[in-house]
């Protein structure tokens, strides 16, 4: 047994049974084969299904025209459903189903049910065909001189290798950056927050005073400039980076912060965008000060610098340093000190 790749060496098939592997295929006649009455019954069944299908298409058209699209009906098991959708689905579904059921019933009851045998042929081409193909290939090789004209061959390969470049290069403007705009990592590292930027409630855009927020309270907030910027830019990009949650805890509960005095009387502001893959986070458990991401369950301890206590996120939740302005409204003291949201290659 020197070479074990030849298929013959695996042909260690034990002696087969004393009968031919091609046994007779069993066949029992069906009732419809022997009883003409049963056959007629089957014929009627098939035809009935096709007739019902026709009727259901008519019912579909009637429902489409007749049922108002806002009608709600109560159907047992299904509850309150839109009447039109329910009727259309039922008519179309059953109508189409019955065509199939009829055809299958027809095949099963009335068409022959004896199995037949066909021979297979090996997939490989006959020797002669292979030889002819080979000869043709050789002829092409010689006639074109592909082997002979080395320089043509090499330059052709070069040309073909470069030909997709224009198609790829033109993808560059998928990102329509104006000239001189910052690099992706610079853009990802900057948000709307800056010194003195007022913190306003998301949705109502009302500025917040320290006393508006009780201990244990939480608000979702955005920068006061956001509406204007969104209007000017025509997108939600600024919101996706600047969204924060503001919480208040007993100052003695704060074990650590990302910067000295970044809170204001126990009020802390953190980014709302998960550092894992970027889901917005809003599940805050005030007793443990844990913030839980609903997407992949990363858990951050806001009383301890927003550090990760569980889950797939690798980075702490960035903290926004806050204070109050002259009128007593909560404001940011600067932008985030680190990029918010998911990590990226250039982040470092």
């Amino acid at each position: 047994m020197s070479d074990h790749s030849s298929p013959e060496s695996h042909e260690n098939v034990p002696a087969k049974l004393g009968y031919s592997p091609v046994a007779d295929i069993e066949h029992k006649p069906r009732l419809t084969d022997t009883d003409p009455k049963a056959a007629r019954r089957a014929e009627r069944q098939v035809a009935t299904m096709f007739v019902l299908s026709i009727l259901l298409v008519i019912a579909f058209v009637v429902a489409y025209i007749g049922i108002d699209k806002s009608t709600i009906v109560y159907i047992p098991l299904f509850g309150e459903v839109g009447a039109l959708n329910f009727a259309l689905g039922l008519c179309m579904g059953l109508g189409v189903f019955l065509i199939g059921a009829g055809a299958i019933q027809w095949a099963k009851k009335l068409m022959p049910d004896t199995e037949v045998v066909a021979q297979r042929h090996e997939m490989a081409s006959p020797e002669a065909a292979t030889e002819e193909a080979e000869a043709n290939y050789q002829r092409g090789k010689t006639e074109s001189g592909f082997a002979q004209y080395k320089i043509i061959r090499r330059t052709l390969i070069g040309a073909l290798a470069l030909f997709p470049i224009p198609l790829v290069i033109m993808l560059r403007d998928l990102w329509s950056t104006p000239a001189g705009s910052p690099s992706p990592d610079a853009i990802l590292s900057k948000t709307l927050w800056k010194k003195g930027e007022r913190i306003v409630v998301d949705g109502t855009y009302v500025p917040v005073k320290a006393e508006d927020l009780p201990v244990g309270g939480l608000i979702s907030a955005v920068p006061a400039d956001l509406l204007e910027v969104e209007e000017a830019e025509g997108n939600l990009n600024a919101r996706g980076k600047a969204a924060i949650i503001v919480i208040r805890m007993d100052p003695s509960d704060i074990r650590s912060q990302q910067g000295d005095g970044w809170d204001y009387q126990g009020i802390l502001a953190f980014s709302k965008i998960c550092t894992h893959v970027g889901c917005p986070i809003a599940l805050y458990e005030q007793r443990t000060h844990h913030l839980l991401c609903p997407c992949h369950q990363s858990t951050f301890d806001l009383a301890d610098s927003g550090n990760v206590v569980f889950g797939p996120a690798a980075r702490r939740m960035p903290q926004l340093p806050i204070g109050v302005d002259a009128e007593g409204y909560l404001v940011a003291m600067s932008d985030f000190a680190e990029p918010i949201g998911p990590s990226f290659w250039e982040r470092g």
Binding site: L88, G93, A107
Partner: peptide, 25 residues
């Protein structure tokens, strides 16, 4: 022809019909 065509063709309508039923209900 005819058995497989009737069965497989019929089965297309069965699948279509069942999806339409689910989609409606």
């Amino acid at each position: 022809l005819p058995v497989y065509m009737a069965k497989a063709g019929g089965f297309f309508f069965v699948v279509f019909g069942v999806i339409a039923l689910i989609g409606g209900l």
